[in-house]
């Protein structure tokens, strides 16, 4: 499974949204109905899945599906 697919799966699972809503430009809060606690949980799920640590200041920038995918791709590349 690609990183992109894994990220989308986590969002579907944690936010309880339909997979077809999880498009790159979708915003967690405005488009996918998340609240501030949901976004914290989402970031924790990313950390677990990809075995990375996401500092709070970075987490604040992860607000859309695309920003999550881009951030995690970069993070994993730099780790390798």
């Amino acid at each position: 499974m690609s990183l992109e697919e894994k990220v989308k799966d986590i969002i579907v699972e944690k936010l309880g949204v339909e997979p077809d809503k999880v498009v790159p430009e979708a915003r967690f809060i405005e488009d996918l109905g998340a609240d501030s606690l949901d976004t914290v949980e989402l970031v924790m799920a990313f950390e677990d899945e990809f075995n990375v640590e996401i500092p709070d200041e970075d987490a604040q920038e992860i607000t859309t599906v695309k920003s999550a995918i881009d951030y995690l791709s970069k993070k994993i590349q730099s780790a390798e």
């Binding site: 606690l37 914290v40 949980e41 677990d48």
Partner: peptide, 10 residues
Amino acid sequence: PRRVSPYFVP
């Protein structure tokens, strides 16, 4: 401690 769920308290 960073792994404690934001839903823990509620």
